[in-house]
Amino acid sequence: MPTASARSDRLNMRVSPEALSTIREAAAAQQQDVSSFVLGAAMEHAREVLLRDRILQLTPRELDQVDAALDAEPQAVPELAALIAAVGRDATRRGAKDLAAH
């Protein structure tokens, strides 16, 4: 977090009394002052937005492909089905051994 001397810009906002009360209560629960709490929450959300924006930039063609894939009938992947079945059998065997041990 920047030191006080490194801070030069100011952010002001108007909020309803109810919103301020909620923010104060949450800040106190986190043992923070309101400014630190609001800045931390805003920075966290800003980073998430920017990350999503940078990672999930699809062209219109790519977006059409995603929509088509989501609209298509689901198809079983034989290798995945076999793996799930094998894991299930293994878990069942382990469970039976655990029961026999007790």
Score class of each variant (00 low, 15 high):
Ala28Asn: 10
Leu51Ala: 14
Arg52His: 10
Gln65Trp: 03
Asp9Asn: 14
Ser36His: 09
Ala69Arg: 11
Ala28Lys: 13
Ala42Ile: 04
Gly40Pro: 00
Ala29Asp: 08
Ser5Thr: 15
Leu39Gly: 00
Thr59Gln: 02
Gln30Cys: 15
Glu48Arg: 12
Leu50Asn: 13
Ala96Pro: 00
Val49Cys: 05
Leu56Val: 02
Leu99Phe: 15
Gln30Phe: 13
Ser35Tyr: 04
Arg94Gly: 02
Ala101Asn: 04
Gly95Arg: 06
Gln65Asp: 11
Leu51Met: 12
Arg89Lys: 09
Phe37Tyr: 15
Thr59Val: 03
Met43Asp: 06
Leu63Thr: 05
Ile55His: 10
Thr59Arg: 02
Leu80Val: 13
Leu70Gln: 08
Arg93Trp: 04
Val15Asn: 01
Ala41Thr: 13
Ala72Ile: 03
Val87Asn: 06
Gln31His: 13
Leu56Cys: 07
Leu51Ser: 14
Gln32Cys: 08
Ala6His: 13
Val49Trp: 05
Ile84Asp: 15
His102Thr: 11
Leu99Arg: 15
Pro2Ser: 12
Ala27Thr: 03
Glu79Met: 05
His102Asp: 07
Ser5Tyr: 07
Glu44His: 13
Ala28Gln: 10
Val49Thr: 08
Asp33His: 09
Met13Ser: 14
Thr59Ala: 04
Leu83Tyr: 13
His45Trp: 12
Val49Pro: 01
Ala81Tyr: 05
Lys97Ala: 11
Val34His: 03
Lys97Arg: 14
Arg47Gly: 01
Val15Gly: 01
Ala46Lys: 07
Glu79Asn: 06
Lys97Glu: 13
Ser36Ala: 13
Thr22Ile: 08
Arg14Ile: 10
Ala91Leu: 14
Asp33Glu: 10
Pro2Cys: 06
Gly40Leu: 03
His45Glu: 11
Ala82Gln: 14
Val66Gly: 00
Asn12Ala: 12
